[in-house]
Amino acid sequence: MTETETTLERIMLVEDEEDIRAVAELALEAVGGFTLTTCASGQKALETLAEFKPQLIVLDVMMPGMDGPTTLKAIRERPAFVDTPAIFMTAKVQPEEVNGYLSQGAVAVIPKPFDPMALSDKIRDIWSNLKPEQRSA
């Protein structure tokens, strides 16, 4: 590891489905060794943001109430999180949809269903492909 690289530790997951939160905890904490905070709604994410200071945010797209894109927009209004890299997770993975999500300020889209054993590696890959300035400590 070179000095310029910052290690990814704190990830926030915004996901309304309990099953997926549980399996993601397992995948990212036990398997990946990250520190994870999960939020069941966009509202909850906004409340937790300042305290947890995530380095990376993973958002489900389709959620009741505030959906993923709306949540991300609200997050971007907080000055401290204007540039925090965000990843969308969704079952819809048509190429034009992926581009749509990327244009909304996400750095990547992870298709659902995901393999719980491979999720950490995937996220690490995404992180290592980011520009150094996006990788905040």
């Binding site: 489905e17 099953d19 399996v23 079952a91 659902k112 269903p113 719980p116």
Partner: peptide, 24 residues
Amino acid sequence: YHSLHRLAGSAGTFGYSALGEEAR
């Protein structure tokens, strides 16, 4: 619709890919 969408997105993660595809 949401119920099917949820199944489509999550079933595969728990090893039920065929269910996920059919729900999709």
